[in-house]
Each structure stands twice: as structure tokens, then as C-alpha cells.
Design a protein around this nucleic acid. Sequence first.
DNA 1: CATGAATGAGATTTCATTCAT
DNA 2: GATGAATGAAATCTCATTCAT
Lengths: 204, 204, 204, 204
Amino acid sequence: MNPASKRLRDRLREATRAAILDAAQAEFSAHGFSSGRMEEIARRAGVSVGTLYNYYEDRGALLEALLERHRELLLSRVDDALAKTARDGFEGRLRAFVGTVVEHFRENRALVAVAIEEELAGGRRNPKKVHTLRELSVRAEALIAQGVKENALRRDDASMFPTYLVGILRSVAVRVLHSDERIESDAATAAILRFFFQGAGKRP
Amino acid sequence: MNPASKRLRDRLREATRAAILDAAQAEFSAHGFSSGRMEEIARRAGVSVGTLYNYYEDRGALLEALLERHRELLLSRVDDALAKTARDGFEGRLRAFVGTVVEHFRENRALVAVAIEEELAGGRRNPKKVHTLRELSVRAEALIAQGVKENALRRDDASMFPTYLVGILRSVAVRVLHSDERIESDAATAAILRFFFQGAGKRP
Amino acid sequence: MNPASKRLRDRLREATRAAILDAAQAEFSAHGFSSGRMEEIARRAGVSVGTLYNYYEDRGALLEALLERHRELLLSRVDDALAKTARDGFEGRLRAFVGTVVEHFRENRALVAVAIEEELAGGRRNPKKVHTLRELSVRAEALIAQGVKENALRRDDASMFPTYLVGILRSVAVRVLHSDERIESDAATAAILRFFFQGAGKRP
Amino acid sequence: MNPASKRLRDRLREATRAAILDAAQAEFSAHGFSSGRMEEIARRAGVSVGTLYNYYEDRGALLEALLERHRELLLSRVDDALAKTARDGFEGRLRAFVGTVVEHFRENRALVAVAIEEELAGGRRNPKKVHTLRELSVRAEALIAQGVKENALRRDDASMFPTYLVGILRSVAVRVLHSDERIESDAATAAILRFFFQGAGKRP
DNA sequence: CATGAATGAGATTTCATTCAT
DNA sequence: GATGAATGAAATCTCATTCAT
């Protein structure tokens, strides 16, 4: 085959693959992972069921790919934000981190729910699997280590701070998920930062 | 029928009902909600599948009942703890609240995961449904209102504190769920309280 | 449950199981193993597809059971014939053996074809599996060992005689399978015996 | 188009056709006829699936061609052997016949199994089809007719001798197929001939 | 002609639910 | 009320075949 038509075919393949992932995202977001149907995904993607299986081994692999795409999107945004603020002090970087995550959750409400659902179920099947939240925790840990080093954070309890932080982020996401509240990202971010640094207590 | 045998029969019914819920809890904890099977629940309960349907309308109703039992157990513990400390100051009551929740999560790891999974899915189907976490948030809200009134908490952002608090609790629970760490309830509770009041920042 | 209705239920179960095997036999005989369809088997048995799976793990297990029933039928007939002639000389016992096998093949033409087909495929998958023809060979070997001991058979080449004998039997069966000839069992048996003892050559 | 490039193209076509048949032989030998897959055949042949369909109408035609090639190979060998011994006596010709068949079976174990499998299935679909074993029987019949004419064979039962002979040959082949025994062609041939002429019985 | 992505009919299998005993 | 065999709708997955490039 000549190189031109090979490249064309490759582009078409990538387009189809993306269409399938988009369709899977729509279907699983609408019905959850356990209820999303392959036939419906095919219909949404404008392909036949067989085609789904040309691109993904089986239903599980499709979900896997979907979550991975989502995970990579989130993490690349987070990593970008961290890279851009690489020279900043801890507070600025934390603000960038929290802001990015909150914004991402706001934009991807439904898929976040699927990810959480599947990561719970996946945890039962295969506890070793990469979890988005776990990856997020890794970033949070590094960040918090910087905060400790800068003397911006308490040293005691520091090992739990990433867990607290991710919990707060997730909780905010879920609150948004189940309510009709439209979250305002910047305000939400600022409030989270205040809470993280000062807690809920009054200054003495 | 005489009242005595009526009472006996009622007791038997209740025993069966409880056995079924226990079996459902074991099955769903082991396989997750979407994969738990009715036949297996019957086997675990020592009854036939038909009997499940004599006690519960369908699979959904059984799960509903299971989650409700779980929710009521948690909430009654929490409410007990709050009632016992009704006359105490905010900090003491918050300590009782957090301690109770942490201890409950520690004891019911697997079921908590199922509850979260189903509440996510349920949220898609019927957004009005009572959620354990939401009910917990209601308690947290009342408690925090007390804290605000006592001037123990900042007034600004106070509407988000329940969300943050519940997020932290859940995150600690999940961390325990997926790691092999054995959590030590009292220490965990103390650290959470420190974080809640003072945040992660250094005192100036 | 009371014992009477338990026994009744057991009888019904056995009847259903037999009906399913009969239906599978009909379907696989008509279309061969690889083309026989589960739905059609269910239809022939007068049950639903689901019921097939209540009795047999999967398609393969159903075929397995069918072949086993067939194998046991043949072997029990053969063993009966051998037992009844236990005190007879070699020739009489061989006559009984050959006669029984020829008669069985005549009666079960189509199923024999399925058995042969599956035993070939099964040999690829799992070379350890019991084969009807192999079991038959075991009987033939024992019989021929008796013949050798009685000085009725040549000692040299004796290790191949069972193979030759079973080959002849099978070949006769297949000839019958593919032709419209109606075989006459007794004559066929007598001819096989003559050939087995004297070969095709003229007496000098 | 000039004749030279036409011939070249024809040679290429034939090479591709042979590569496809070789690939089909490998695939069907490995997985049996009913499980061999077109895509895998294409991969083994180093062509695309589409190309398979340029050379053969469909899957059935490809198998047909494969079996025919195999049949022709066997029969041409047999016919060669018979032609070379055209002037010899019956025993020599029979020896040539048996020796050729045994050697061929030894060399083509897996394919012989496929042929048997398909001929059984084919027999169900289209009882008129040419069968390798039947063709072999035809040669055996002619040969045996010569033997009868030469007074080397008994006249009674002679109509069954071809069936017996082919059965013996096949049985020896299958024995080799399923065991790890390496057969020694000449010894095997000699033993078969002894059995065919004299049977298993002791000379009086 | 060759290619290989797309097709979709068709098969297997699962399992919540029903209902005769 | 309890039982558990039967049901059958629904879902997943396979793979021979087609056809635009």
C-alpha cells in the first residue's frame, strides 16, 4: 500500500477509535458502567457492534481505555499546572492544583461518577490497578512534601494531608454531582485553600 | 390464631428477614452490587430463591432494605453519640461524631463500598433518594451550626464545612479500604479534628 | 419438603435430563456437533434454553454427557456379552463381542458419526480424554490376549490385532453410515470373524 | 499484454494459491475444520483476508480445495505405485498399495484427521461428494478383484475385503495419530499384509 | 488485484423472576 | 409459606463475508 493511503487509513482508524470512546463515555455516563450496553455504544458511535470488538478486546477493555483517557486528561492538566508553577511557592502551586482538579470535576461530572464506581468495583477484582484518585494522591503528596519543606505546613499529621485534601476535592465533586448547584470554580478553590491552611476554627 | 403462636410466627419471620439481609450483605460485599446474585444470597441465607421474593419485592428492594439497615445502624450510632453529648460543647460533640463514623467505617469497610457504589448508580436513576452520606451531612450541618453559634468556627465558608468534613471521613475510609493499613480509630479521629480546626498550615 | 414430593421432583428432574439428552442426540446427529444449536435442542426437548443450562454447565458439557451416555450404553452391552460368555472359548467370545458392536453401530449410525467427529476434535484439545474406540480397544486387547493364551491366535503381530479388529468394525460402521445398504448383523459378524481368523487369502 | 508477463502473472497467482492452501492446511490441522479461522489463514499465508476471497469463493470452497489437493496427492501416489507394479502379481501390488497409504498417513497425520472430520460432516450435507476413503476403496476394490481373479483370495466375502482393508489402514493411522508411537512404515506394512492374507488365526 | 476495516446475523450464556407443587 | 425447576429476555461476543480505497 502506498504511504499516503496508509496515513489516511491510520487517521480514519484513530477517528473511529475516538468516536467509540466518546460514545462509550456518553453511554456509561448516562447509565453507569454496569448498565451501559455495547449495542448502544455502537449506535452512538455510528458503527456496528463488531467494530467495537475490532478496537477493544471486550467490554472491560473498552471501559479501561475510557478511564485511562480520562485519567490521562486529568493528570496531564494537573501536571501542566504544576509544571507552569514549578518555581512558585507552595501556596501558589497548591492553588493551581486544586483549581485544576475542581475545574476538571466540574466539566466531567458524569464520567467522574463512572470512574469512582468502576474504581470501587475494580478494587475488588484487581487491587493493583492504577486509580485516578491514587495518582492524584501521588501529586498531592509531592506537593505537600514541598509545603512541609517550606515550613508552610505542620510536620505532624502531614502524612494524612494528601488523603484529607483528595477527600475534600472528591466530596466537593460529588456534592456538585448530585445537586443542581452550579459550582463557581474560583470561589470553590479559594474556600478549599482557606480550609486547608487554616481549618474551620476561629483564629485565637 | 392465638396471640402466642402469632408472636412466635412473627419472630420467625423476623429471623428469616434478618438472615436474608445478612446473606445479601455478605454477597454484595463480596461481589459488589451489580454482580451479587440472588441465588447465591438464597444459598447463603439457607433459604430458596422463592423465599427471597416472599420477603422482598425484587432485587432492588432487597438492596434498598440492606442499605437502609446499614444507614439506620450508622445513623442511630451517630445520633446516640450526639445525644449522649447533647450538653457538651462543640468540640466534644464533634469528636464523638467523627469517632463514631470512623469506627463504623472501619468495621464495615466492604459494605460502605457497596453503599457508595449503589448511591452513585441510584443517583442516576432517582436523584431524590435518601443517601447515607447526605444524611450524615445533615448531622454534620447541625453540628457545625452549633460550632458557628458557639463562635468556635469561622462563619464564612461554613456552608462548605460539612462537605469537607464528610469528604475527609470518606477519604480516610477509602484509604483504609484499599490499603492493608489497619487504622487506629482514636489516633485517626484526633488527627482529623486537628486538621478540621487548625488546617494544615503552621500557626503564625 | 415431604419425601414423596421430593421423590416426585427427582423423577421429573431425571425425565427432563433424559429429554434433553435425547434432544441433543437428535440435534447433533442431524447437524453434527459443531453445527448443532442450543436453541434447537431446547425446542426439541420442549424446554427453554435456560433449562439446558440448569442441567449442563455449557454446550461442551452437554455433548460430553451425551457421548458418555452413548459410550456407557455400548460398553455395558459389550461387557454384558463378554460376561455371559465368560466361560466360553475365544472364538465364541469374539463372536459375541463383534456381534454386539456391529449391532450397536447399526442401531446408532448417526450418533456414532458424532462421536467419531468429536473424538477427533477432542483429541486435539485434550488428548487424555476417554475415547469410546479406545475403551473398545481395551476390551479387544483383553479378548485377544485370551486368544493368544488359548493358542487360537498367532503370537507375532498380536499387539496389532486389536487395532486391526477395531478398524474393521469402524470401517464397516462407516460403510453403513454412508451407504443406504441395510446391514444384516449376523452375516456381517460371521464374515468379519472369517476374515479375522483366516484372512482374505486362499487356504493352500 | 505480452505472453511473457502473462506467464509471470500466472505463476504468481499459482504461488499465492499454493501459499493459501498451505496456510489453510496448517490452520485446519492445528484447530480442526470447524474452528479454523479465515483471518488466521490469511495471516499464515501472508495475505489479507480479502485476497482469500479472490482465490476461493468462500470458506467451504477453500476447504474443498485443500481436501482435493490432499486427495489428489494421495491418489496420485497410490496410482503411481499401482502403475509401476502393473505387471506384477497381486501380492506385490497389494504391498505397494498398502505401503504407499501407510507412508502417506504417517506423513500427513493431522490433515488426515481433518479430512476424516470433514468427510463425516460433508456426508451429512452432501452424501454424493467424493470421499478420499471411498476413492481409496475403489482402488482397493480393483486390486482385490485382481486377487480374486488370480485365485489368491477367497471369493466369498470378497466384496467386504476392501472395506476391511481400508478400515485397517485407517485404524493404524488413527492409532498413530493419538499416540506418540513413531510408526515404522515397512514393518507396519508387512504386518498388515500378513494379517490380510492369513488373518490372526493359527495355521492348522 | 490487494487490502483490512466494517458489518451484522447468529450463537452462547446469564440470571432475575415466576409459579406449580 | 417454602421450594426450586423452568422461563426467556437480554446481553456479550465471534467471525465469515463485503467493499471502498
